[in-house]
Structure formats: C-alpha cells, structure tokens
C-alpha cells in the first residue's frame, strides 16, 4: 500500500562474509501489504541479503529498522511479527508433522490451534503425513511443512527464500494465491525467487541483486532473469 508508513526500513545494508560484501548495498522500504521480490543469478547474494535482513547473519554495515526501531532479531517482538522460511530444514526434533504445527499454533496463542492446524494440513496437502516425522518425508513435503508453519501463525512480515523450490506446479500456484491473499489482508512479504511466473504473480516490486542493486518492476525483472525482452 504505497504511502503507508514503512514496516521495514533497510538502509545501505552491506551483506557478505568475513568482511567481504557479496553484492551491492541494499536500500529499500517495505510497507504493510507490499510484496517485494528479490531476483538475481546464482551466487549473486539474494539469500545472503534475506538472511541478513532477518538477522540470521551479521551485516557488514548498514541498518535494518522495523516499525521505526532498530531490528532486534533475538527479541520476542521481532519473532512474533516475522515469519520466515529459509532453505535449511528446521523443525523440532522428535515431533511429528501435526505436533510441530500444533506447537507453533499453541505457542503463538491461537484460540483454536487444532482447527488451524487441520486447515493448514489440508491446504498444503499434508493430511496423510500428519502422523509422520518430518525426516521421513520427501523434500517437497518438508518444504510444504515449513510453509504451513509459516502461514499458520499470525505475522506482519513474511520472509521467504525460494519458497517455490521442490514444490509441484499446482502447489506453486496455490502458494502464490496464498501470498497475494495474505498481502491483501495487510501482511508484507519479501520473496526470493528464480521463477519469473511466480515473481510476476506475487510481487508488486522487485530488487535485482548483483554488484549493483536495482529496483525494477516484476515484469522487467522476470524478463531480465529469463533473458527475454520485457513485454
């Protein structure tokens, strides 16, 4: 929603490892209801930027402010407001799919955690795997589980690192609709992706990460990563 106050304010953020930046400095603001896409070549630094924004990696320089205040990634406030899915599989060891989701729902104080869990299991097609341990699932099912946990809980901002990876096309389409619907309800999202169709379906703006960081329209960014001229 252009014009609304910034939910996330990233200023001159330099990301990298051992003092070496992997891409140009990032400066961007995101308001509630906005979906920002991030694209770039392999190794350009997309995931590094997202991890740095999330606080899971130290920034070389620059700042990240959330609701006008410096982001404190280990605070309960940040964790209550931000839902993130990265490439690394993360679930509570020894818990089944249903138990993991129930723990997330109850931990966030949902009024009817069982009903919410059932809805997400149905949406992400995990009913048959509800009693299974995550490590026994396929990689695509594990990705569905992480996405279900991300959408199950309330959040103001969602950070998604290539969420379409390992999903079948039908699920990718449904995921896109879900992100758009959540944005319509006021949630902001930052989505790293390699899928041009997915990008144009969900994102309203797009950053292209490289030695320089540019902001393009999703259509132009999609054309750039596919090597085709923009329509």
């Amino acid at each position: 929603m252009p014009g609304s106050p910034a939910l996330l304010d990233v200023t001159a953020l330099s990301c990298g490892f051992m003092g070496h930046a992997v891409c140009g400095e990032v400066t961007v603001t995101i308001a509630s209801g906005e979906v920002l896409g991030i694209v770039g070549w392999n190794g350009a630094g997309k995931s590094t930027v997202l991890r740095t924004v999330a606080g899971r990696q130290d920034a070389l320089s620059g700042s990240v402010r959330f609701r006008g205040e410096p982001r404190q990634e280990e605070s309960a406030r940040w964790r209550r407001a931000v839902s993130a899915v990265f490439d690394d599989d993360a679930w509570f060891p020894g818990l089944t799919v249903r138990e993991h989701l129930h723990l997330v729902a109850a931990g966030h104080g949902l009024a009817a955690p069982d009903r919410s869990v059932d809805q997400e299991l149905a949406f992400f097609g995990l009913e048959a795997a509800a009693k299974a341990f995550p490590e026994t699932l396929s990689s695509g099912q594990r990705r569905r589980l992480l996405l279900a946990a991300a959408f199950l809980r309330p959040a103001d901002l969602m950070l998604l690192d290539e969420p379409e990876q390992r999903l079948d096309p039908a699920m990718v389409a449904r995921l896109g609709e879900r992100i758009v619907a959540a944005a319509d309800e006021g949630m902001a999202a930052v989505v790293v992706t390699h899928d041009p169709q997915f990008l144009t379906r969900v994102a309203g703006r797009c950053l292209v990460i490289d030695d320089d960081v540019d902001e393009l329209t999703p259509a132009r960014a999609a054309a750039l990563i596919t090597g085709r001229p923009a329509e």
């Binding site: 899971r56 280990e74 605070s75 309960a76 964790r79 209550r80 839902s83 993130a84 990265f86 690394d88 599989d89 993360a90 679930w91 509570f92 060891p93 020894g94 723990l103 997330v104 931990g107 966030h108 946990a149 809980r153």
Partner: peptide
C-alpha cells in the same frame, strides 16, 4: 539435537534468552 537447528526457536514468539 535441537541445537543443530539454531534458528528453530525463532518460529515461536520467544526471545533468545
């Protein structure tokens, strides 16, 4: 076992401490 996923607890609204 849980320490192998250091960011796991971030799915819950609880501070690191």
């Amino acid at each position: 076992a849980s320490a192998l996923s250091p960011d796991l607890e971030a799915v819950l609204p609880i501070s690191a401490g």
